[in-house]
Design a protein around this nucleic acid. Sequence first.
DNA 1: CGCATTTATTTTAAGTATAAAGTATTGCTA
DNA 2: TAGCAATACTTTATACTTAAAATAAATGCG
Lengths: 168, 168
Amino acid sequence: MAVAKESPPVSPKNGVDQEAEYRAQTRLWLRLLACTTLIEGELRRRFREEFDFTMPRFDVLAQLDREPSGLVLGELPKRLMVSAGNLTPIVDRLVEDGYITRTPSTLDRRVQIVCMTVEGRKTFRRMAKSHGSWLVELLAGFPADRLDGLTGELDELKGAVRDAMQKP
Amino acid sequence: MAVAKESPPVSPKNGVDQEAEYRAQTRLWLRLLACTTLIEGELRRRFREEFDFTMPRFDVLAQLDREPSGLVLGELPKRLMVSAGNLTPIVDRLVEDGYITRTPSTLDRRVQIVCMTVEGRKTFRRMAKSHGSWLVELLAGFPADRLDGLTGELDELKGAVRDAMQKP
DNA sequence: CGCATTTATTTTAAGTATAAAGTATTGCTA
DNA sequence: TAGCAATACTTTATACTTAAAATAAATGCG
């Protein structure tokens, strides 16, 4: 039963509309996933090839780059939206490689402060520059005057999803 | 739109525009990643809680569900955009659990045909129904009349990125 | 036919991810 | 002030992920 798009709302939502909306939602999700996977895969590949570095490691450095005085270790999982346990070995290796330091707080011996070293900052800057240019290269084909519009839509989407997750 | 397509670094003249565009591109990428991570994480969590199942396993079943006569194993990595090596243990376990079968082709003994079992099909239908309703729930807060528009934008983005990756 | 190449798939090594349990340490409170 | 709950972080178990090497079978070509 084909329903005209502009048919008045006879019932709040009839079966056909619901079905169509469901399919539209599924399509959106699949497209979102495809875009992210595509870009993420390419960035990962280049990080590996050019710098023998991984994105999670870069992400940690990116957070620390904004915090000259360092960051409480527990802040990282929150900001990067990953689990705490995941971060331990990543931070371990960044310390091992000399890019960051991990110092126990004198006030609370459970807490550790992580801070980028001079070496780490230098390395990060170099990688960040490439990262930026890769992004520019990959997104160059998308009309510049619609970048903000799309970002705005995604912001709304994110808000809606977050709200939906809050409720229960 | 007055943006040089791929002029390397920066000429003083349009330096500001380029910088602004670069920031817009970065914002878009971060938002895209945030949306996907948010939704993916929630779906993963629910798959785990409700069905003790993972998304990659579900994705394999979803592909096979459309192919009543089964699929050449090598098709899966292409369709799911994952590496072949990754798939081996996933398929192994699905076979082990009785959801799919893996039969060597009689024509070419390198090739294997994977096919969903009746049991697998039953299980998949049940999970797919929940998956759909979760998606509806998570995306309910986003205006229905803008779903297709956003999907279209993402399609364009995907095309642009794919083109950019093709060239070199 | 014999051998190199290509194709399909698996194995391996290194890393990322989560959940859940474990270890200190601190703070609260009865 | 003794004990217990909360907090910060690590460890463990399991699974996904890729890249690259390995295996195995088919194909092509001289």
